[in-house]
Design a protein around this nucleic acid. Sequence first.
RNA 1: GGCGCCGUAGCCAAGUGGUAAGGCAGCGGUCUGCAAAACCGUUAUUCACCAGUUCGAUCCUGGUCGGCGCCUCCA
Length: 467
Amino acid sequence: MGIRLYNSLTLQLEEFVPSENNTVRMYTCGPTVYSYAHIGNLRTFTFNDILRRWLRARNFVLHDVMNITDVEDKIIRNSMAKGVPMGEYTTQYEKAFIEDCARMRFLPPWRLVRATEHIPEMVAMIETLQAKGLTYETEGSVYYRIGKFPEYGKLSHNDFGGIRAGARVDVDEYDKDDARDFVLWKSRKENEPYWDTPFGKGRPGWHIECSAMATKYLGNTLDIHAGGIDLMFPHHENEIAQSEGCSGQPFARFWLHCEHLLVDSSKMSKSVGNIYTLRELLEMGYAPEAVRYLLASVPYRKKLNFSLDGLKAAATAIDRLRNFALRLDTDKHPEGVNAALEERAAKSLADFDAGMDDDLNTAEALAAVYEYVRETNSAMDAGGFHAGNVESARRVLARFDEVFEVLKTAVAEGGMSDAEIDALVAERSQAKKSKNFSRSDEIRAQLLEMGVVLEDTKDGARWKRKS
RNA sequence: GGCGCCGUAGCCAAGUGGUAAGGCAGCGGUCUGCAAAACCGUUAUUCACCAGUUCGAUCCUGGUCGGCGCCUCCA
């Protein structure tokens, strides 16, 4: 049995197989770069990362594209308010986003593409839609006439039968013939950035960039299209209308949607003041790995209730695994191999994989690791863990970290080198051995101040950097 | 109003028609010059409530209560 994924389009768990050979063609909706990424955005991007990592772990070749939306209403509004050119405004936030992704240990996508660099592709797509009679123009803007796309609503499972055709619903400054119609190209307004096109000066609507860029890099039919659940309607529905209206072929075979993140059981909102950015959390002293772990540990189709207590718990949970890894290296394991533990490790790996294969059930995958770690710790305490079992134990941790990527400590800036620490630890052990406890305690305190925790074990002292 | 999700121990959370994974916290213990760290053990007769189906339901059906989301800003 391979990977099963929940397809929003069919509302079913389906076995995932790419349409062609071993390559997965995947598109994920990226950020609109008008501010710093908050914890809610990061949940979706963490989901993207876990998905990509698991597909790779299952030996698929990834052609995944993520967009950067760098022209959009809020961007224009904010940059104009600041009197900064749009490109300058978006560049700073795009840079911040890339930095955040690195800190979150997201694998870079195969292609990271900017909307503003694909205007000709968008124009071409709109022209095709025009040629097919699927559009109309009002006051210089081009709209999609959804009445001509009967399948509209098939992704969000909305039945639009109740909406009166031809009703004029006033939603913004643009006039539409039907409430479902949406703008493909917006006519230029005073002082706004614009491009010259066959339909006049203006800028793209929000949805067209994804259709144009996904098609350009991945073809007419994607294997997977992923994003936050709030994009399902209207954004993804509109992408389908645009892409399928153009190509006549299914736009994506699998649609994956990541559920919302709540903060202390409530929706994030500025008025409540419960929006955290990654930067804020890091300034508060939380490790990016803890954020990553917390966001990854709840299966992506469940609402995730974020809290600072949960973040602390995540950090402690990571420590447990890091301690186990440290123990593998530093304990003196008797020679030989314990066959039962080899089987135990194999079971853990199989359970981990089974959990991930089951629609990325990270909670179940994690349980497989922790059960193994607990039992193996017990075996070490009892002397039943042998040198020959180290390798399989490392394989379990490696499999886990291939997906979760939290075991490595972020490299501390400055501080002591490993060699310096080793020397101090050795000196303390000597002092301790000769009952010079004041000196040994002094060194212990000194190390702690440098963020190094000493642990006395029956096999001698070992140390680790405080996380 | 329409559509949908959810309600499992102090907190986070998995799961199955056959009697409750895992993590954190708490408590107990091992280790230790002291300590820390680490590790181990332990913590739900019960899965919001009521009724039904069933030999048997947390898991199926109906209802009640509660929380949340979407319905053209939104990851």
